[in-house]
């Protein structure tokens, strides 16, 4: 074989590997989506969505799990959002020590790398046992707060960095105090970054199971009021999927929940893209 023919062959083999891998990746995704939707969508019914499980009628409903997921998202974001945005503001606007910033960024990175089962263990020790909150949505939420902090800190920080220095100098030059400047200039201009962080965090909360199994449990009771809801244990949709699939063998319900989760993930991804696009659009205007 001539040298150039060999070269051609090598190039083609590499190309085949690259194209083959890309096709395989897409095929895996399409296969998963297709399979879940085909097996799951037919089992989504109004009765499934709007009732709680009943032994007497022998029916399964996931309304409690839907409510628990919503409760979990609301409380977790309510706590994590101010903390995360505050941390990002401190890092970009206040902190002067490079060393301190590096330490905070390193710990944030570390938090992002800790697997959810470890969060589950620590949440169980600290919130459930030491602080005596019991297996409850509150314990689950507090555990998730630590888990999603890195996401919110990072996205807020990224968007704070895109706020032009001129904005800050202009405001301070006109005699605004630092807090006034942050409140009226900085926060509004990094809003889309904060929203992106929120959406990503919601995605993680919706998909989480290992950290919640030991902190919030898997109960399926509908609480009568807000305080009752947070002081009681309850399973989110992902936890319910695990319980129905592994412990009860109710695969129809499991696939229905999986289909709902995939639809949610899809919506969350679209929303993230939309938020990021509006962020980039604004940057170009500047």
């Amino acid at each position: 074989m001539s040298h150039s023919a060999k070269r051609n062959l090598k190039g083609n083999i590499c190309k085949a590997l690259v194209y083959g891998s890309a096709i395989l990746t897409v095929a895996i995704l399409v296969g998963i989506l297709g399979y879940i939707f085909v097996r799951g969508l037919p089992h989504i019914s109004w009765q499934l969505l709007s009732t709680k499980p009943s032994i007497i009628r022998n029916t399964v409903g996931i309304l409690p799990n839907i409510l628990n997921t919503l409760y979990m998202i609301v409380l977790t974001l309510l706590i994590a959002l101010p903390l995360g945005v505050g941390a990002a503001i401190y890092l970009t606007e206040y902190a002067t020590s490079k060393r301190f910033i590096a330490i905070v960024e390193f710990t944030t990175e570390t938090l992002a790398g800790i697997p959810s089962i470890i969060y589950g263990l620590v949440g169980m020790l600290v919130f459930v046992q030491v602080l005596g909150l019991g297996v409850s949505l509150l314990s689950g939420s507090l555990t998730l707060v630590i888990m999603i902090l890195p996401t919110i800190i990072r996205t807020t920080q990224e968007s704070l960095k895109t706020v032009p220095a001129g904005y800050r100098e202009g405001a301070l030059g006109l005699g605004a105090t630092k807090w006034y400047m942050i409140r009226t200039i900085i926060l509004p201009s990094c809003l889309s970054g904060i929203i992106t962080g929120c959406i990503l965090a919601v995605g993680r909360i919706v998909g989480e199971s290992a950290a919640l199994l030991f902190t919030a449990g898997s109960a399926t009771v509908i609480a009568s009021n807000i305080i009752d809801a947070y002081s009681r244990g309850g399973g989110t949709l992902s936890v319910a999927l695990y319980i129905y699939a592994s412990e009860r063998g109710e695969f129809e319900v499991a696939f229905a929940i999986a289909a709902i989760l995939l639809i949610l993930v899809f919506l969350i991804n679209m929303a993230t893209r939309f938020a990021q696009k509006s962020l980039n659009g604004k940057e170009q205007v500047k």
Partner: peptide, 16 residues
Amino acid sequence: AVELLAGIPSVVYGLI
């Protein structure tokens, strides 16, 4: 598509 793959909850992978 890759981002979607990253967003799928681990229990869904487990179920499949």
